[in-house]
């Protein structure tokens, strides 16, 4: 695995409010995450992990400091540019799946391609790509199901397929198993490990140490600062599951 850094956060601060009453949600956080790493972020509520994820996901900008994503400084970008970065570089997996209701799995997965300005593809092309990733996550037979017709685990798989379809450099998972029962949660973790095996860079927020321990590193946040970074071993420990290979794109 190469040592190319995907995430370089340098003294990132996020301060809400002004002057005396200002509160620093992030108070100088510096992290480097290399390509192909699987990293967990842990911390109690109010520790700043949501703020960090929002900044890493380009949903928000740091007040101070720099965030360099895949050798591109995104800390000064405007809303439109950030939208483009989210579209092409980042894949989100949320705790509550965040799929469009009354919209088929296929259409949900096609959504990021729909907003891609740099690479316009025909509807047929997009559909073929969405179909491919849905097959990778094991939902090849559920293409036309709407979210409300799918189980929680299946909905999260659709969300993972959506995160993958644009071939992003970074996958951000915010408590991906938080809404799932143990078995479905394990399946989703299995899927994330497979993605990691394939060389994906994944940053995952979790509050469950059992889950965090399966990643390579755990970053512990407290009061807007990094408390400690724990190495969980050289490689992540995948759960038992079918190995899925995909073509390098």
């Amino acid at each position: 695995m190469s040592e190319r850094p995907i995430i370089q956060a340098i003294e990132v601060k996020k301060i809400y409010g002004m002057g005396e009453i200002s509160v620093a949600a992030l108070d100088g956080v510096s992290i480097t995450i290399d390509e192909g790493e699987f990293v967990a972020v842990m911390g109690p509520s109010g520790s700043g992990k949501s703020t960090l994820m929002n900044i890493l996901g380009c949903l928000d900008r740091p007040t101070e400091g720099h965030y360099i994503l895949d050798s591109e400084d995104v800390s000064e970008m405007d809303r439109k540019q950030l939208a483009g970065i989210r579209n092409r570089r980042i894949g989100f997996i949320f705790q509550s799946y965040n799929l469009l209701p009354r919209t088929s799995a296929l259409k949900n997965v096609m959504l990021p391609l729909f907003y891609n300005r740099n690479h316009k593809r025909s509807p047929e092309e997009r559909e073929a790509m969405a179909r491919d990733v849905l097959e990778i996550v094991g939902l090849g037979d559920r293409l036309n199901h709407q979210p409300q017709e799918l189980s929680g685990g299946e909905q999260q798989r659709v969300a993972i397929a959506r995160a993958l379809v644009g071939d992003p450099v970074l996958i951000l998972a915010d408590e991906p198993t938080g809404n799932l029962d143990t078995r479905s949660g394990e399946e989703i973790m299995g899927l994330l490990h497979e993605l990691h095996q394939d060389g994906r860079t994944i940053v995952m927020v979790t509050h469950d140490p059992e889950i965090a321990i399966h990643t390579q590193r755990t970053i512990h946040l407290r009061d807007g600062r990094i408390e400690k970074v724990v190495n969980n071993g050289s490689g992540s420990k995948p759960l038992e599951g079918e190995k899925v290979r995909h073509e390098s794109r």
């Binding site: 996901g57 949903l59 809303r79 439109k80 939208a83 483009g84 989210r86 579209n87 092409r88 989100f92 965040n98 799929l99 469009l100 209701p101 959504l111 990021p112 907003y115 891609n116 959506r162 644009g166």
Partner: peptide, 14 residues
């Protein structure tokens, strides 16, 4: 829905 669209890359113009 708007939030979801924004998270996958919809710009304000979109």
């Amino acid at each position: 829905e708007i939030g979801i669209r924004q998270s996958v890359g919809a710009t304000p113009d979109d």
